[in-house]
């Protein structure tokens, strides 16, 4: 059920982010969602793209430090408290959230959120049992 997320290490200097996005764009790869975590020295660009395998290869060949990680694409009711309900399910199961960020596009009337936890299979199980929809990777890449 997991979605492959691409993470790229970027030094905090001008033009690095532009270089990554240009490289992907020139190779016909579409970025579906992204987030950046940054410190004083560096940033981590996390992305969901339509072709993670090829994106990873392209970035690596271009000399970037790249890694892929499994994350969950979770549909969240698009109303006040919607996200809180989902997070409470994970909290009750003792699952810590490392980070999360949102999709701009939607697959349905619900909002789509990407969540990273250590134990993905357990998270899928508890979310499904609680009636929360977790989208498989291939649906997410095609959005």
């Amino acid at each position: 059920m997991e979605v492959r997320q691409i993470s790229v290490f970027l030094e905090n200097k001008a033009g690095r982010l532009a270089k990554v996005t240009r490289l992907l764009g020139d190779n016909g790869i579409n970025i579906r969602a992204l987030s950046i975590a940054d410190t004083t020295d560096f940033g981590i660009l996390r992305m969901i793209v339509n072709d993670p395998e090829r994106a990873e290869r392209l970035l690596r060949e271009a000399g970037f430090a790249v890694t892929t990680t499994g994350v969950l694409a979770v549909e969240v009711p698009d109303r006040p408290g919607g996200l809180a309900e989902v997070l409470e399910v994970l909290e009750r199961a003792g699952l810590n959230i490392e980070y999360l960020y949102a999709f701009v596009e939607k697959a349905s009337p619900d909002a789509l959120v990407l969540i990273r936890v250590e134990d993905l299979p357990k998270a899928v199980r508890v979310l499904t049992e609680a009636g929360v929809s977790v989208l498989p990777g291939k649906r997410v890449y095609a959005l």
């Binding site: 997320q5 410190t39 790249v66 890694t67 990273r116």
Partner: peptide, 13 residues
Amino acid sequence: VPPGFPMDEVRRL
């Protein structure tokens, strides 16, 4: 940073 370092989290770096 090693090219394949699992660095999706700031903490790891």
